[in-house]
Protein backbone atom coordinates (compact mmCIF):
# COMPACT_ATOMS: atom_id res chain seq x y z
CA UNK A 1 0.00 0.00 0.00
CA UNK A 2 2.62 2.51 -1.02
CA UNK A 3 2.88 5.39 -3.46
CA UNK A 4 5.82 6.61 -5.51
CA UNK A 5 7.39 9.95 -4.73
CA UNK A 6 10.02 11.77 -6.74
CA UNK A 7 12.80 13.68 -4.99
CA UNK A 8 14.83 16.23 -6.91
CA UNK A 9 18.10 17.85 -5.88
CA UNK A 10 17.99 21.62 -6.33
CA UNK A 11 20.55 24.27 -5.74
CA UNK A 12 19.15 27.32 -4.09
CA UNK A 13 19.17 29.37 -7.23
CA UNK A 14 16.22 31.47 -8.20
CA UNK A 15 14.06 29.95 -10.88
CA UNK A 16 15.05 26.30 -10.41
CA UNK A 17 11.74 25.37 -8.77
CA UNK A 18 9.96 27.01 -11.64
CA UNK A 19 12.05 25.05 -14.14
CA UNK A 20 10.98 21.75 -12.59
CA UNK A 21 7.29 22.63 -12.64
CA UNK A 22 7.66 24.04 -16.13
CA UNK A 23 9.30 20.89 -17.53
CA UNK A 24 6.55 18.76 -16.01
CA UNK A 25 3.76 21.13 -17.04
CA UNK A 26 4.86 21.12 -20.66
CA UNK A 27 4.85 17.32 -20.62
CA UNK A 28 1.26 17.35 -19.35
CA UNK A 29 2.15 15.99 -15.93
CA UNK A 30 0.10 17.08 -12.94
CA UNK A 31 1.68 17.75 -9.59
CA UNK A 32 -0.59 16.43 -6.84
CA UNK A 33 1.51 17.28 -3.80
CA UNK A 34 4.78 19.08 -3.26
CA UNK A 35 7.13 19.80 -0.41
CA UNK A 36 10.49 21.56 -0.36
CA UNK A 37 13.09 20.88 2.30
CA UNK A 38 15.96 23.27 2.11
CA UNK A 39 19.15 24.47 3.73
CA UNK A 40 21.05 27.65 2.94
CA UNK A 41 22.82 25.89 0.06
CA UNK A 42 20.52 23.36 -1.48
CA UNK A 43 17.04 21.96 -1.38
CA UNK A 44 15.23 18.68 -1.92
CA UNK A 45 11.95 18.96 -3.76
CA UNK A 46 9.53 16.08 -3.14
CA UNK A 47 6.67 15.50 -5.52
CA UNK A 48 3.66 13.26 -5.96
CA UNK A 49 2.58 13.38 -9.60
CA UNK A 50 -0.06 11.66 -11.69
CA UNK A 51 2.48 9.83 -13.91
CA UNK A 52 5.55 9.12 -11.76
CA UNK A 53 7.49 6.90 -14.17
CA UNK A 54 7.12 9.33 -17.04
CA UNK A 55 7.96 12.29 -14.82
CA UNK A 56 11.10 10.50 -13.58
CA UNK A 57 12.30 9.97 -17.13
CA UNK A 58 11.53 13.52 -18.23
CA UNK A 59 13.27 15.12 -15.26
CA UNK A 60 16.29 12.89 -15.65
CA UNK A 61 16.59 13.68 -19.34
CA UNK A 62 16.35 17.37 -18.48
CA UNK A 63 19.47 17.00 -16.38
CA UNK A 64 18.01 16.90 -12.87
CA UNK A 65 19.24 14.53 -10.18
CA UNK A 66 16.09 12.55 -9.37
CA UNK A 67 15.37 9.68 -7.05
CA UNK A 68 12.21 7.62 -6.73
CA UNK A 69 11.15 6.47 -3.29
CA UNK A 70 8.15 4.82 -1.64
CA UNK A 71 5.93 6.79 0.71
CA UNK A 72 2.63 6.18 2.50
CA UNK A 73 -0.48 8.21 1.71
CA UNK A 74 -2.40 8.06 4.96
CA UNK A 75 -6.02 9.11 5.53
CA UNK A 76 -6.13 11.35 8.55
CA UNK A 77 -9.38 12.37 10.15
CA UNK A 78 -9.83 16.11 9.53
CA UNK A 79 -10.50 17.08 13.12
CA UNK A 80 -8.43 18.03 16.17
CA UNK A 81 -6.16 15.16 17.22
CA UNK A 82 -6.40 13.35 13.88
CA UNK A 83 -2.71 13.65 12.99
CA UNK A 84 -1.62 13.10 16.60
CA UNK A 85 -3.33 9.72 16.55
CA UNK A 86 -1.31 8.55 13.53
CA UNK A 87 1.95 9.85 14.96
CA UNK A 88 1.24 8.04 18.20
CA UNK A 89 0.82 4.74 16.36
CA UNK A 90 4.25 5.24 14.81
CA UNK A 91 5.83 6.23 18.10
CA UNK A 92 4.40 3.24 19.95
CA UNK A 93 5.59 1.01 17.11
CA UNK A 94 9.12 2.43 17.39
CA UNK A 95 9.08 3.88 13.88
CA UNK A 96 10.84 7.12 13.04
CA UNK A 97 9.07 9.50 10.70
CA UNK A 98 11.63 11.06 8.39
CA UNK A 99 9.26 13.69 7.04
CA UNK A 100 5.63 14.28 6.11
CA UNK A 101 3.56 16.75 4.14
CA UNK A 102 -0.06 17.31 3.15
CA UNK A 103 -1.71 16.15 -0.03
CA UNK A 104 -3.91 18.70 -1.80
CA UNK A 105 -7.09 16.67 -2.27
CA UNK A 106 -9.21 15.16 0.44
CA UNK A 107 -10.58 11.66 0.59
CA UNK A 108 -14.19 12.23 1.56
CA UNK A 109 -13.99 13.96 4.92
CA UNK A 110 -10.44 12.85 5.58
CA UNK A 111 -7.24 14.75 4.85
CA UNK A 112 -4.39 12.87 3.17
CA UNK A 113 -0.89 13.12 4.62
CA UNK A 114 2.20 11.76 2.89
CA UNK A 115 4.62 9.99 5.27
CA UNK A 116 8.14 8.84 4.71
CA UNK A 117 9.37 6.50 7.46
CA UNK A 118 12.44 4.36 7.90
CA UNK A 119 10.52 1.11 7.32
CA UNK A 120 7.72 1.64 4.87
CA UNK A 121 6.21 -1.86 4.75
CA UNK A 122 6.19 -2.31 8.52
CA UNK A 123 4.69 1.17 8.91
CA UNK A 124 1.95 0.31 6.45
CA UNK A 125 1.06 -2.91 8.25
CA UNK A 126 1.07 -1.18 11.60
CA UNK A 127 -1.38 1.48 10.40
CA UNK A 128 -3.66 -1.18 8.90
CA UNK A 129 -3.68 -3.07 12.20
CA UNK A 130 -4.90 0.11 13.88
CA UNK A 131 -7.60 0.63 11.29
CA UNK A 132 -5.97 3.62 9.63
CA UNK A 133 -6.58 3.52 5.90
CA UNK A 134 -4.02 4.35 3.28
CA UNK A 135 -4.44 5.15 -0.36
CA UNK A 136 -2.66 3.03 -2.89
CA UNK A 137 -0.46 4.81 -5.48
CA UNK A 138 -2.52 4.20 -8.60
CA UNK A 139 -5.59 5.66 -6.92
CA UNK A 140 -3.71 8.56 -5.37
CA UNK A 141 -2.19 9.72 -8.67
CA UNK A 142 -5.69 10.06 -10.19
CA UNK A 143 -7.32 11.94 -7.32
Amino acid sequence: MTAKQLSIFLENRSGRLHEVTDVLGRAGINIRALSLADTSDFGILRLIVDKPDEAYRILRNSGFTVRESDVLAVEVSDQPGGLAKVLEIFRNGGINVEYMYAFVEKSGKNAIVIFRTEDISRSSNLLSEHGVSQIEGEKLYKM
Binding site: S7, F9, F42, I44, R60, T65, R67, E98, R116
Partner: peptide, 14 residues
Protein backbone atom coordinates in the same frame (compact mmCIF):
# COMPACT_ATOMS: atom_id res chain seq x y z
CA UNK B 1 25.60 15.64 -6.89
CA UNK B 2 25.22 12.67 -9.19
CA UNK B 3 22.23 10.39 -8.85
CA UNK B 4 24.08 7.75 -6.87
CA UNK B 5 25.25 10.33 -4.34
CA UNK B 6 21.85 11.87 -3.95
CA UNK B 7 19.84 11.07 -0.88
CA UNK B 8 16.26 12.04 -0.31
CA UNK B 9 17.24 13.24 3.14
CA UNK B 10 18.66 16.63 3.96
CA UNK B 11 20.67 15.15 6.83
CA UNK B 12 22.45 12.66 4.59
CA UNK B 13 23.45 15.35 2.10
CA UNK B 14 24.67 17.59 4.88
Amino acid sequence: VEERLFSDEVRALE
